[in-house]
Amino acid sequence: MRPEQQGVEVAVLVSVGCHPITGRARRADQDARGLELALGLERQLPGSRVSLLHAGPRGEESEAALRGYLGMGLESLTLLEQAEGSDAIPALAEHLAAAPPQLVITGARAERGEGSGLLPYALAERLGWPLVNGLAAVETIENGVATLLQALPRGQRRRLKVRLPAIVSVDGAAPVARQSAFGPARRAELEATSVPAEPDRELAEWQLAPARKRPKRLKIVKAASARDRFKAAAAKAEGGGGQVLTDVTPEQGAEAIFKLLQEEGVLR
């Protein structure tokens, strides 16, 4: 560890999640990963401080979900209490501007409501801070500059340098959140402050419905002849069974596999 490295103030923005199957309130997966990242940072840079921030209404269900984050080993959570259906962005931006941390970590998208993933961007725009999305790891923080690893698809990583203060958002590539323990969650405190809320009128006008299953795209084959169209349709319907090579030499087998690997472009 280098001497220049020193503790940082990290604020983690958390939301009330929603289980994809049962819809029960829970700690949101991405936000919990964000908190895990922050806790890892606390370990990596002694003297760091992690604070939790949530804006929203206080209710039995949401409190239980928020305590899910506290069960990961924090003593308190700042709750900006607002009425249901309010816009959380102004309240959060105001709170962060009043006592700016060096790093704000948030999940990429909420599991409830609009879930547009705009919040980190809106905060970054309001606060005028740089934003990095898809964070996988924080490598170092030195002299107000953080070296980060951003996740690219398929396990690839990109190294970025960002001047602090900054907002980073995490998605499924960040480290999996640790287990939430009942004891610490029960003991921890929710420090609630009431904040003025502006209702999100636009959202209220939209029609929300449970997601319909999206129609599977049919392979439309623009073919010159009926025969080609029929062949394409038949090939689609056939699906299922693959090609089985029996009684081939190892070379022939390897050749076939090699061809497939090349077609799929997984050989580099």
Partner: peptide
């Protein structure tokens, strides 16, 4: 040849895995 993995596979080679892998490595 009767195992479930081969039924699932898009391409299956019924042969000794060691030889195939060696041939594949040589090929690559």
């Amino acid at each position: 040849p009767g195992c479930d993995m081969i039924k699932r596979a898009d391409l299956a080679v019924v042969s000794d895995s060691g030889e195939i892998l060696a041939a594949l490595v040589a090929k690559v």
